[in-house]
């Protein structure tokens, strides 16, 4: 399980807006969005194309800066960091899983997973040990020394999730992580994301598939850069079973 660094929410977006351009060419990508993701929680973001889903994810991951409002990751206000500080925060606290281009082709699965740790100053041996632990947690140990082209798409995405949550990272940001996979394999990837969140990580999942969003605890809807609705928290499986049976 990922280390618990703070007891508060892992991610807070507080009245965040992102505006590109100005005057007549102004485009509002995100408007006054507020969102909190706690440890153990997976939140899905849905909405039509161009509704601001990826903007929200990029802001949450420190890949872009808000025009106004605050983005707080593990208690750190992202806007207070310079580029170096932001890169360090991303390496230590945030993992990304994208639809493709997830793994570096010339590195094995274990090397891919250990890379962010090595970049953060860890020794190669210690980074590998952590990488193998991460693979063990996802029951993927046998993939450790395989290169991406020796793995199926589903295996690559599982390794990408392992990398996203290696070391002390507690926040995983996933943008259509099942995009190129068949439905069965995609479900396996989401199950692993769900398990990592159940084990203490916080997750934000951008998807256009209702079936995938259904793995989340909450679903947030965006339209024209505005959060227009939210499903609210889920009931427990036990209470649902009691109700259904």
């Amino acid at each position: 399980m990922s280390a618990a660094v703070t007891t508060g929410p892992v991610l807070v977006l507080d009245d965040v807006s992102r505006v590109h351009g100005e005057g007549e060419t102004e485009v509002v990508a995100l408007s006054h969005a507020s969102l909190t993701v706690a440890r153990g929680e997976l939140v899905a973001v849905m909405g039509p194309s161009g509704s601001g889903k990826s903007s929200l994810l990029n802001l949450a991951g420190g890949l872009d800066r808000a025009t106004s409002g605050r983005v707080v990751v593990e208690g750190v206000d992202v806007s207070s960091l310079d580029a170096k500080g932001l890169a360090a925060l991303r390496r230590r606290s945030i993992g990304f899983v994208f639809q493709d281009l997830n793994l570096i082709p010339s590195l094995t699965a274990a090397e891919n997973i250990g890379l962010p740790l090595e970049l953060d100053g860890w020794s190669v041996r210690r980074a590998r040990s952590q990488a193998l632990d991460a693979l063990d947690r996802l029951k993927l140990r046998e993939l450790a020394d395989r290169y991406p082209d020796q793995m199926s798409g589903g295996q690559q995405q599982r390794v990408a999730i392992a990398r996203a949550l290696v070391g002390e990272r507690t926040l995983v940001l996933a943008d259509e992580p099942t995009g190129a996979l068949d439905s069965h394999t995609g479900e396996g990837v989401l199950k692993i994301l769900r398990q990592r969140c159940d084990a203490g990580a916080a997750g934000l999942l951008v998807t256009h598939e209702a079936r995938h969003a259904a793995w989340a605890d909450r679903v947030v809807f965006l339209r024209d850069g505005i959060i227009v609705d939210e499903t609210g928290a889920a009931a427990t499986a036990d209470s649902l079973l009691a109700e259904a049976r």
């Binding site: 849905m46 199950k191 769900r194 209702a210 079936r211 969003a213 259904a214 793995w215 989340a216 605890d217 679903v219 809807f221 227009v228 609705d229 939210e230 499903t231 609210g232 889920a234 009931a235 499986a237 649902l240 079973l241 259904a244």
Partner: peptide, 21 residues
Amino acid sequence: VQTQRTATLKHLRDLTRLKSR
């Protein structure tokens, strides 16, 4: 549409939890 979609997604989420169980 939005109200219904939110309700249906909640239902879908509950079913997904039941299925994994």
